Computed example of a mutant assay.
Amino acid sequence: MSGFLERIKGVFHRKEEDEKAMYIIAGLGNPTKEYEKTRHNVGFEVIDVLADRLFTSVDEKKFKGYYGKAVIGGEKVILLKPQTFMNLSGESVRAAADFYKVDPDHIIVVYDDVSLDVGQLRIRTKGSAGGHNGIKNIIAHLGTQEFPRIKVGVGNKPPRMDLADYVLGRFPKEERGLMEDAFKEAAEAVEVLVKEGAGIAMNRFNGHKEKE
C-alpha cells in the first residue's frame, strides 16, 4: 500500500498553490463523537468508505475541515469532510474550491435525504436545498445551485417527531446493514460520476431500491 500512496503523492508533487484538483468530493456531517453514525452524518461515512477504496486517508486539516488526496480514473480529487457543523458546510467547501480553483460543476456533495427510503440513492446535477441546511449554506457560498450531488436516503421521520431529533439520531439495527451497503454504493457512484459522467451515473444508480 505504501507504494500506491507514493504514486498518489506523485500526482500531487507540485506545490499545492500551483495545483488544480479536478474534483472536490465533499461528504457532509457534524464533527465530534457525539454525532458519529447519526443519520445526518452519512456524508462522512461515504467519504470514509471512498477513502478506503482509494487507499488514502482523510486526516489532513485545512479548509475548516479534514481532507485527503486521491486519483479516480486519472483525475485528481480532494476528499473533504467539513468540520464547521452542518449548517456552515459551505464555508469549508468554498475555501477548498477557491484554493484549488475548482468550478461548482466539479464539486460533488454527498449528504442525507429524509425524502428517500433508507439506503436509496439519487444523483442530481443541480437543484434546490430541499430543506437541507448544509446544502442551503453551500448554495449560498458558491452562489449557484448547479453542482452535482449524491443523496443518500435515511427514511422519513415519524409524524410526531422533530426533524432535528430524527436526523441527529442513529439508525436502528435493522436499518444499519442497509446503510452500510448504501455507503459502498454511494462511494461507487462517486467513482462512476467522475470517470463516466453524470448521465451514466444517474442511469446506473437512480431509482435503485425505490419502491414499486
Rank of each mutant, 00 (worst) to 15 (best):
V58T: 09
G73A: 11
S89R: 12
A51V: 10
V71N: 10
R53P: 00
I78L: 10
P31R: 04
E91L: 12
L88G: 02
K76L: 03
L80Q: 05
F85E: 08
I47G: 02
V71I: 13
I24W: 00
N41W: 11
V93I: 10
K64C: 07
A26F: 10
L28I: 05
L50N: 05
V71R: 05
E60N: 14
V77T: 03
G29D: 11
T38V: 12
G65D: 06
F55E: 09
N87F: 10
E34D: 14
R53K: 14
S92H: 11
K76Q: 08
K33Y: 14
N41L: 07
G68N: 03
L50W: 00
D48M: 09
V49S: 02
E34K: 15
E34R: 15
G43T: 09
K37P: 11
N87H: 09
L88Y: 14
I72M: 05
G29T: 08
L80H: 06
F55T: 02
E34V: 14
G65E: 08
N41A: 10
F85G: 09
Q83S: 14
A51F: 12
V46C: 07
R53V: 04
F55K: 13
G90V: 11
V49T: 05
M86L: 15
V93Y: 11
V42K: 10
V46A: 05
Q83I: 06
V49M: 01
P82D: 01
E36C: 08
Y66G: 00
A21R: 02
A26R: 12
L80G: 06
S57N: 13
G68V: 01
I25S: 00
D52Y: 05
D52M: 05
G90L: 11
L50Q: 07
H40Y: 10
P82Y: 02
S89Y: 10
I24T: 00
V71C: 11
F85Y: 15
F55P: 00
P31A: 04
D48E: 15
L54R: 04
Y23T: 06
G74S: 07
L88N: 14
L88P: 03
A21Y: 00
E60V: 09
V58K: 01
R39Y: 13
K69D: 02
F55Q: 13
Y23E: 03
G90K: 01
S57P: 06
K64M: 13
L54E: 01
T32Y: 13
Q83C: 06
H40D: 12
E75A: 07
K33C: 08
I47Q: 03
Q83P: 02
A21L: 06
F44L: 08
E75R: 14
I24Y: 00
A70S: 15
Y67K: 07
A70L: 03
D48K: 13
E60A: 12
D48A: 12
H40F: 14
S92Y: 11
L80V: 03
L28D: 07
G29H: 04
K33M: 11
V71G: 08
V71T: 08
S89F: 13
E45I: 01
S57G: 10
A70W: 03
P82I: 05
I47W: 04
E45H: 09
Y23A: 10
G68R: 03
E45D: 10
T32V: 13
I72Y: 07
A26D: 07
R94T: 01
Q83L: 08
E34F: 13
G29V: 06
P31K: 02
E36D: 15
G29P: 06
A21N: 07
Y23Q: 05
G29A: 08
I72R: 06
I24P: 00
